[in-house]
Nucleic acid binder design. Structure first.
Length: 424
RNA sequence: GGAGAGAUGGCUGAGUGGCCGAAAGCAACGGUUUGCUAAACCGUCGUACUGGUAACAACCGGUACCGAGGGUUCGAAUCCCUCUCUCUCCGCCA
């Protein structure tokens, strides 16, 4: 959510920023509602002030044994006016809130303006796509041959679009999770969190998934709980409605499964692990002072890159243009993995600075150096999503004989196994 | 799922209709004292909205907030209703 004061005081600045986002939003209505809201509040507050004064007098008069029935009758009328105004304020606030929740974040000054993914900028690339002396296969062919997963049986259990890892494939999934958690906790200074996988509507609204993404998420209607599409939701909500007392920055890492309906994506990448309704992810979340949030973003990206470098997987870092950034982001880097079987780059991580956008929605504050209470800045990044990392690992590690060589860093987590071979 | 108890400011904890935004203690912050530390003493010490002065810091006023939402009343932390959460006991259960 944007600061209503910013919109009120610098409407042109806000209009310009929003114009670079992909979904056009008009702030005129918000401004008009804000005007009406403040007028109604002022009027109601003045009446309440009067009522408070009179009520106090009634108490004094009664104690003195005087008749106060007439003055009470008058005050009751004031009370009725107040109630009507309070209702009006509530109504206006609800409308204003609804509009405010639909306004995306403003892009940071360093974000290139652009319409869509075509205007994103490649910031750097690490590693070179490997040259094959045979035709590289895609991860589905590799995995099925090696018995790492079984999509047919997964469909029997849960329908299309769910993964089912088997044997060494399941172990590799677990190994990657553990490897990344270990790296982020022991090398990068993150605290591990194992959060709930279902969350309330308030939590989803706090991080910005609701109301906009309701159709993309699984909802347990009986209990009105939502399955998390990312650990960002429960972890960022750790401090909802709180003034953080611990010194910032706070850095958390959490492994969770992620659930996404992928409504509107029917037919795209339906094969294999690339687009699935459930995938595992190790997520990084930071709560930081506003002054350092952009430094923290760069550090966050480096932490994610460190994982890929250690796994020896070629990747590139993209800076997203204003039109391609997600709703809540002020600045965002995507990290894409090279996938030889698809002969292309796969988006596997998104690292964003949300500035105070989420903190304002979720009401997460801290006391700054001057003792003043202010909203924190929140950041998060995938560090990383398992399914596509898995794809890259299989496709980059595949050999002419059909086996897959595992990166040295992951072998200790696989009981020393160096390569995945065909089942006996 | 059943029965009971509870939810007050960073923490502990008073407060059952008006002088309560809320005692007291602790913690924190500023200061005095001090060779240093400690102690003692003095002061400050919630948040949001809103009006004004003023301007990107601050000051003055108003309003609201004692788990959340409604209600009664001239007036609610205090009385009533609903909900949420916590604790204890019972039942069930990985």
């Amino acid at each position: 959510m944007l600061d209503i004061k910013l919109i009120r005081e610098n409407p042109d600045f806000v209009r310009d920023g929003l114009a670079t986002r992909n979904s056009p939003v008009d702030i005129a209505e918000v401004l008009a509602l804000d005007e009406r809201r403040r007028a109604a509040i002022t009027e109601a507050d003045q009446l309440k002030n009067t009522r408070n004064d009179v009520s106090r007098q009634i108490g004094v008069l009664k104690k003195a044994g005087q008749d106060t029935s007439e003055i009470q009758r008058q005050t009751r009328e004031i009370g009725e006016k107040i109630a009507a105004l309070d209702n009006a304020v509530r109504e206006i606030e609800a409308q204003q809130e609804k509009l405010m929740l639909a306004i995306p974040n403003l892009p940071h000054a360093s974000v290139p303006r652009g319409r869509d993914a075509a205007d994103n900028v490649v910031v750097r690339q690490w590693g070179q796509p490997r040259q094959f002396d045979f035709a590289p296969q895609d991860h589905v062919a590799i995995g099925e041959r090696l018995g790492l997963f079984d999509f047919d049986r997964a469909a029997r259990i849960a329908g299309a679009g769910f993964p089912l890892f088997t044997g060494p494939g399941a172990r590799l999934e677990r190994a990657l999770i553990q490897f990344m958690l270990d790296m982020h906790t022991t090398r990068h200074g993150y605290t591990e969190i194992a959060p709930p996988h279902l969350v309330t509507t308030a939590a989803m609204t706090g991080t910005g998934q609701l109301p906009k993404m309701a159709d993309d998420m699984y909802h347990a209607s009986r209990d009105d709980l939502w399955l998390i599409p990312t650990a960002e939701v429960p972890v960022t909500n750790l401090y909802r409605d709180e003034i953080i007392r611990a010194p910032l920055p706070l850095k958390y890492v959490a492994y969770t499964p992620c659930f996404r309906r992928e409504a509107g994506s029917a037919g795209k990448e339906t094969r294999g692990l690339i687009r699935v309704h459930q995938f595992d992810k190790v997520e990084l979340v930071k709560f930081v002072p506003p002054e350092t949030s952009y430094d923290e973003l760069e550090a966050l990206v480096r932490d994610v890159e460190h994982v890929l470098q250690t796994l020896e997987l070629p990747y590139r870092v993209l800076q997203l243009c204003s039109g391609d950034m997600s709703f809540a982001a002020a600045k965002c880097y995507d990290i894409e993995l090279w996938a030889p079987g698809h002969n292309g780059w796969l988006e596997d991580s998104s690292c964003s600075n949300f500035e105070a956008f989420q903190a304002r929605r979720a009401n997460i504050r801290w006391k700054n150096a001057h003792g003043k209470t202010e909203f924190v800045h929140t950041l998060n990044g995938s560090g990383l999503a398992l399914s596509r990392l898995y794809v890259a690992l299989l496709e980059n590690g595949q050999q002419a004989d059909g086996s897959v060589v595992l990166p040295a860093a992951i072998r200790p987590y696989m009981g020393g196994l160096e390569r995945l071979g065909p089942p006996a």
